[in-house]
Amino acid sequence: MASATEQRETDQVREIGHEEYDPVGTAILIGIYFLILVLLWLFMYFVEFLGNGPTVVGALLTVVGLA
């Protein structure tokens, strides 16, 4: 490891090591992000398909005889 890695932050009030650190807040934020992505995907379904125009999926279903 290079010598220029940061040693200590001045505002630090406690030292948390690798074993004792549990990034639960990160898990929550990432979970919220995934939820937003899922909701946006659902929203895109309405934008994409409710116009009832031709779509690639529709064409594919036609080709394989499903629609």
Partner: peptide, 12 residues
């Protein structure tokens, strides 16, 4: 984000 959280928790 986990690295930022680590920093934030070390800052109290």
């Amino acid at each position: 984000v986990a690295s930022m959280e680590h920093g934030a928790r070390q800052r109290g």
